[in-house]
Design a binder for these strands. Structure first.
Length: 730
DNA sequence: CATAGCCGCCTTTTT
DNA sequence: GGCGGCTATG
């Protein structure tokens, strides 16, 4: 290891980097240089004679994996180390050990819309009504079962109550549909891999040999299935290095179990623990507020954020009339920062829900500020992209009925619903896939002559794509990579399927779509050049895992707009967080539960957002916000008070500015209609019971009081609606 | 069989 | 408010 590298590290960082054998837990606060530590650690391992081939680093997103690969390459430590997400790794493992895992190697990876379609079908097949059993809810329930590694048969065997029995039926049926279509959903990738490693000692041993060193980043957000995979992978050598921060756990709703990181030392009793508590990113003022906020979480190990930078600018909290004014103000402030020389690529705006990007985009457009919404799925969700990918999917996996039905009449080629139904039901009767049905149209009596011809022409076209291309072909159960790469094939399919033509005839929209397809083909070209073993199969299986932050281009001179969740792992000079309002952050859906777990996760979410900022942090809320077409009065988030940000003043000044001193006349006399509360006041609420006032925000009639109730819950309430009675102190 | 228009459903966060 | 699915019409 070069001294020049090591000299850049603190003593704790050095300990983590130079630790070689055995389990290591790196508890790394925000901005502690964790990513750098991981990369240097990979370099140090290689330096100490370990083959890059034997190193596997797991990141949370594909974007993070890309970045890590690049930075490792810059250190000269890239060659051969496997760096990817859990899901990507599982795809490769399942493909390689398909037989042992009891899957077919050319499986389709089903994304959420495919899943939904399958689920609807499953509910229908069970002769249930999807309004009583909403597909989304059922998928959530099944997803969490899979994350717990409970498969359909096991679940079915163990259920007693009415609802669970039905869920079990649906689960079984859903899995059957997936397997008929040779599809795996995201959770299957993890579950099947965990089962494979658990049940096949040989495979587990082989992979343990291959990955002698396992590094897992964002360990606080691993779920039980991922945890099991990790445990099994390192069971022979225990060379596991987990890095993470319990305070940044924000994916509980997706099955992430923060106990994985909390129990690391129990799981690996000889673990060495390194704490990285110094923060090299943010000004002390920002850390102080973030620290204040996170300290409100009860279920938490005490931890300090140690600043290394000067105090800097105070965190700015502003309130606005509505979301339009808020967005305009953000745009204006961005403009000012930019005029002072700030780089747009170093500015970000975070919000709680994707729907909030719209208003911000409009403001940025009006102010002519370049921006990018970091939400890569958008691209792969586009119709034209999905259409072309569906063709490629069918070429890889003919049993992928969803993809096949998508393209059978796209572009329109005169194959209507009735024709499709006839083929579909014929295939069902003969117990063959729809694709096989296409080959036997002559046997389907119900079809007209014209329909038969059209179906045959379609099937021939697919065959032609398959045959004429230079691979990929199945040799046994292995797909041989296309010699010429995937891009030319994609181009050919696009041209000859009629997709290109139909877009060209559509005018402006079609033009746009054509450009998108070009972009897709460019990205396939890039894939062809950099993939380890490019094949259509690999491409199609990996592409389904790409999403969200993955498409984020850090180098372009544009302001980044993203959700707080997507902000994880990033940093910016200036950060705006909008909509810091009760009901939005914390989100209303997370304040309904019986305990504070979800509220605490919302608090961590804001904590993550705040700690992305290096020098400037701007929090804001709107007094009115239009939600689902309805203009609603909002309440500032309790988190604003908890963070100790100075803002009550801005709230009331803003208020009096626009409403002309309704509540206080110029002499400061009080003509208010709602009572004052002082901190510490004991109060009673009709449904929440006794509690103590933690904060009071004077906004006249719209004053808000934050109360910690004896039940342990903290709520912020509008005084005028809350019906609080003051109790005498005890 | 294709298309346009309407109705009703969902709506947090995402690999 | 937005999308998917259904229906009525050409």
């Amino acid at each position: 290891m070069h001294d020049t590298f090591l000299r850049q590290l603190t003593p704790s960082q050095k300990k983590a980097v130079l630790h070689v054998e055995g389990p290591l837990l790196v508890l790394a606060g925000p901005g502690s240089g964790k990513t750098r530590v991981i990369i240097y650690r990979i370099a140090a391992l290689i330096d100490s004679g370990i083959q890059p081939y034997n190193i596997c680093a797991i990141t949370f997103t594909n974007r993070a994996a890309d970045e890590m690969r690049q930075r490792a390459a810059a250190l000269g430590a890239s060659g051969g180390a496997h760096i990817s997400t859990f899901h990507s790794l599982c795809v490769r493992i399942l493909r390689r050990y398909a037989a042992q895992a009891k899957v077919q190697s050319n499986f389709s990876v089903y994304d959420d819309s495919d899943q939904k379609r399958c689920m609807k079908q499953a509910i229908k097949d069970c002769e249930l009504d999807s309004s009583n059993f909403p597909p989304g809810r059922m998928l959530d329930a099944i997803s969490s079962l899979k994350n717990q590694l409970i498969d359909a048969d096991t679940f079915k065997a163990g259920v007693a109550d009415f609802f669970s029995k039905i869920l079990a039926e649906i689960y079984v049926r859903y899995q059957k549909l997936l397997s008929e279509r040779n599809g795996l959903d995201f959770d299957d990738l993890l579950m099947k891999t965990a089962f494979l490693l658990r049940d096949s000692g040989d495979v587990c041993g082989e992979l343990g040999e291959r990955f002698k060193f396992l590094l897992i980043d964002e360990y606080q957000d691993t779920n039980h299935a991922q945890y099991t995979i990790a445990r099994l992978l390192v069971s022979r050598h225990n060379n596991i290095c987990a890095t993470g921060d319990p305070d940044q756990s924000i994916y509980r709703w997706r099955g992430a179990d923060v106990r994985n990181i909390l129990a690391f030392e129990n799981d690996w009793p000889d673990a060495k623990v390194v704490r990285l508590e110094e923060n090299f990113r943010s000004a002390a003022a920002i850390l102080e507020k973030a620290d204040n906020l996170i300290a409100y979480n009860q279920k938490r190990k005490e931890k300090k954020l140690i600043p290394t930078k000067p105090y800097g600018k105070d965190v700015l909290v502003e309130s606005f009339e509505d979301e339009v004014a808020e967005a305009r103000a953000v745009a204006q402030q961005v403009k000012e920062l930019s005029d002072k020389g700030a780089s747009l690529s170093d500015i970000a705006v975070f919000y709680r829900v994707n729907a909030m990007s719209r208003g911000l985009e409009e403001a940025f457009i009006r102010h002519k500020i370049p921006y990018q919404v970091v939400r890569g799925i958008e691209f792969y969700r586009r119709k034209e992209i999905r259409d072309l990918l569906a063709y490629l999917k069918v070429l890889v996996n003919p049993d992928d009925e969803i993809a096949l039905l998508r393209i059978i009449n796209t572009p329109a080629r005169g194959i209507g619903k009735i024709t499709i139904d006839r083929v579909h039901s014929y295939a069902g009767r003969c117990n063959i896939s729809v694709f096989e049905g296409l080959k036997k149209v002559e046997h389907i009596e119900a079809l007209s002559k014209g329909a038969k011809a059209k179906l045959s022409a379609f099937a021939d076209m697919l065959d032609e794509f398959k045959k004429d291309i230079d691979g990929p072909r199945f040799h046994g159960d292995r797909l041989v990579p296309a010699k010429a790469g995937i891009a030319p094939l994609a181009q050919r399919v696009f041209d000859e399927s009629g997709l290109a033509e139909s877009l060209r005839s559509e005018g402006a929209d079609g033009q746009n779509a054509l450009e998108n397809v070009n972009e897709l083909i460019n990205s396939i070209t890039a894939y062809d050049q950099q993939a380890e073993e490019p094949s259509l199969l690999d491409y199609i299986q990996q592409i389904s895992l790409f999403s969200d932050v993955d498409g984020y281009d850090t180098s372009s001179e544009r302001v980044a707009l993203m959700t707080l969740h997507a902000a994880k792992g990033l940093e910016f000079e200036n950060v705006f967080i909008v909509g810091v309002e009760h009901g939005l952050l914390p989100h209303e859906r997370s304040t309904a539960g019986e305990n504070d777990d979800e509220l605490e996760e919302e608090r961590r979410l804001l904590f993550v957002g705040m700690t992305r900022a290096k020098t400037g942090l701007y929090l804001s809320y709107a007094r009115y916000r239009t939600i689902r077409g309805q203009m609603l009065r909002t309440i500032p988030s309790q988190f604003l008070f908890e963070s100790g940000c100075d803002f009550a003043e801005s709230a009331s000044s803003c208020h009096s500015r626009e409403s002309g001193n309704l509540y206080h006349d110029d002499n400061g006399n009080d003509n208010r209609s709602v009572p004052y509360f002082t901190v510490g006041q004991l109060v009673r609420h009709d449904s929440f019971g006794l509690g103590r006032v933690k904060e009071f925000i004077d906004m006249g009639e719209d004053s808000v009081v934050i109360i910690k109730f004896n039940t342990g819950r903290t709520k912020s309430l509008m005084v005028k609606y809350a019906g609080l009675s003051k109790m005498d102190g005890l």
